[in-house]
């Protein structure tokens, strides 16, 4: 056994250098050389300032912006997670019923898309469904004095489809949509 332990210790140290030192360093090097933007977090810079990451949801509450899905961790990008409420949880059912009712009142829609009233797994879901985005168009249009048709076109332009037409679901990136929205407003000079 002593001989095994000696070899085990030496093997561990050698492999440690290889798989925990050299390997991540090579991946880091390739990332910084070939995929600099992605490797550093897909950050978005506007007017010289980092305003967010296109992969991480940020909170939006103003009527002038499209809102992301609710987050169980309050969009804490240092502590991702979901609600972990089970299917027969009263808390979950009451929350969903209340949120659906509130949305139905403000939007006068009968069908509420499921992503609008459910928390995501990461709490940082950067996307919403196109249905939920379209549901928010009248509110944003009113707040910004914009034409609803223009906004619907903007949403359609920002809708990503399935991979190979099969995997994943159609979605809209909320931060990118809101950035486009801000750009749209300043171009038309219609700031309120």
């Amino acid at each position: 056994m002593k001989e095994h332990l000696v070899i085990a210790t030496r093997t561990t140290l050698v492999l440690l250098v290889l798989v925990s030192g050299i390997y991540p360093a090579i991946v880091w090097g390739i990332g910084q050389l070939a995929f600099r933007d992605a490797a550093n977090g897909s950050l978005i810079v506007r007017d010289g300032r980092v305003v967010g990451s296109s992969l991480i949801a940020q909170p939006f509450t103003s009527a002038r912006y499209f809102h992301p899905r609710p987050s169980a961790v309050d969009y804490n990008a240092q502590g991702s997670g979901g609600s972990n409420l089970g299917p027969t949880s009263q808390k979950l059912r009451d929350r969903i019923v209340a949120d659906v009712r509130a949305l139905q009142t403000t939007t006068r829609a009968t069908n509420i898309p499921p992503d609008a009233v459910t928390t995501s797994a990461s709490g940082l879901d950067p996307h919403i469904s196109p249905e939920y985005a379209l549901l928010q168009v009248p509110r944003v249009a009113r707040a910004r004095h914009l034409d609803e048709a223009n906004l619907r076109a903007l949403v359609r332009g920002h809708t990503e489809g399935r991979f190979l037409g099969v995997y994943g679901e159609p979605r809209v990136n909320v931060l990118q949509l809101n950035l486009a929205l801000d750009a749209l407003v300043s171009r038309d000079g219609a700031r309120e």
Partner: peptide, 12 residues
């Protein structure tokens, strides 16, 4: 609501 999206990501 239809499909169960509690605790799931929109892209999946």
């Amino acid at each position: 609501l239809g499909p169960n999206l509690e605790g799931k990501e929109t892209r999946f």
